[in-house]
Design a protein around this nucleic acid. Sequence first.
RNA 1: GUGGUUGUAGCUCAGUUGGUUAGAGCGCUGGUUUGUGGUACCAGAUGUCGUGGGUUCGAGUCCCAUCUUCCACCCCA
Length: 474
Amino acid sequence: MAQKPSIPKGTRDFNAEAVAKRSYIIETTKEQFQLYGFQPIETPSFENSETLMGKYGDEGDRLIFKILNSGNFLFEKNTIELPESLNTLMLKSLDELSISEKIELNKFTDGISGKALRYDLTVPFARYVVQHQNDIVFPFKRYQIQPVWRADRPQKGRFREFYQCDADVVGSKSLFQEVEFVQLYDAVFNALKLDGVTIKINNRKILSGIAEVIGAQDKLIDFTVALDKLDKIGEEKVKEEMRSKGISEEGISKLQPLFSLKGDFGNQVKSLKSILSVSEIGLEGIKELEFINTAISNLKLKTATLQLDVTLARGLNYYTGAIFEVSAPEGVKMGSIGGGGRYDDLTSIFGKPDTSGVGISFGLDRIYLVLEELGLFPNTITDATKVLFINFGEKEALACLEAVTQLRQKGIKAELYPDAAKMKKQMTYANRRNIPYVVLVGKEELESKMFTLKTMETGTQEKLKLQDLLQALL
RNA sequence: GUGGUUGUAGCUCAGUUGGUUAGAGCGCUGGUUUGUGGUACCAGAUGUCGUGGGUUCGAGUCCCAUCUUCCACCCCA
């Protein structure tokens, strides 16, 4: 036997059932997006390298799949210039390179690879907005559901090819957008019958404010990354990490009230206010949160809960205001199943400043796993063939095909077994495909122009005229 | 990127300190039943033991490399 074929690490094949379940999630989500006024767009699978590189931090750059240019690099006309410090570069890992060496390496990489696979949907979306700004009507509400690729190490619920499902609005600073996104999360998960999710909310301005109060403005990212781990590694380890990042003991002690922050939205806000009383930006963040919370309390959510979580930080690189994260209902072991936030400056990297955006994302693969675990996929999802015609031979098969054609015209999913195989084999085929009805047309039926309809589950069968057969299967 | 883990039949997995011809269950094919499936019984087929090197008289078993699986970290959806 030849060597078994395989697929690359971190990729998957989907069978009919998986496709049906995935499209159920996607279609349900799309429906809600459209109810909220979002329009679909799509962007290419790969972008020019410079569109993506440098937008996700060093860590992100490392995980971008680069596409090798085609052609013969050694051919006279295409020759690539090797970096001057080639020998040094060969001895160092990415982290050890100096800035000038990095520039040199990037230049070389650009020479052999000018394109890269899409790493997320947000940056290509920003590119889209800037590129088509004259045709777009602002505020621009779009949704996008497409695969993205990351050269990551796969883990549970983490792949190298996976779908993202984003909805964003650009060109409006209104906090009503945030309010609507909270409602949208609630609506989508409600439509998926996934009750009891928690929508956690925070605000980058509050994080900035806290960093300011403890004198760690310059270490904002280190500070928030550490704080973000609170429910995972606990208070002591978080403090330890902050110390190791050079945050002062005095500052850490000022954080103490933060660790014991409890209670409902109102109480948390109260204690936050006292911590942040000297920080203008922090108080602004609180004001924004209060606005959103008040609106949501008045509007009411169907099944989700809105919760303030000051430790929520997420990929901080572009969020500037509200930060969202959705976690699965209690009892389900799964990380976040969605996230998002406001970014005030994303399009300025492509030359269009002052365009505020806010958006949310759904973790399709994880939602799939959660729905699977809780048994929330409807049974009707995989409606396969309803009736199989047993093939007794050429003449009989021909008569069957006529009936099959008529059934199909009535919208009944019907098929004829292609070969005049043994009856047992054909029946087994029906069983394995979960086809509930079988029609037998042999010599006898052919002469009397009747059809024997057999219900597989009960084993009962009856002889019917074509008209009655149609009726019975409708 | 760091540390660990996994790979044997279509699937799930056994396989002793290295020792003749590598096994089980399920599935598959055929038969009991030449026009009636799921059950039962009978018979049968299937493996470059992930791949490539090495050690050895001898390797599924030991060593090295590589790919793959899963997990923790980093990061993230």
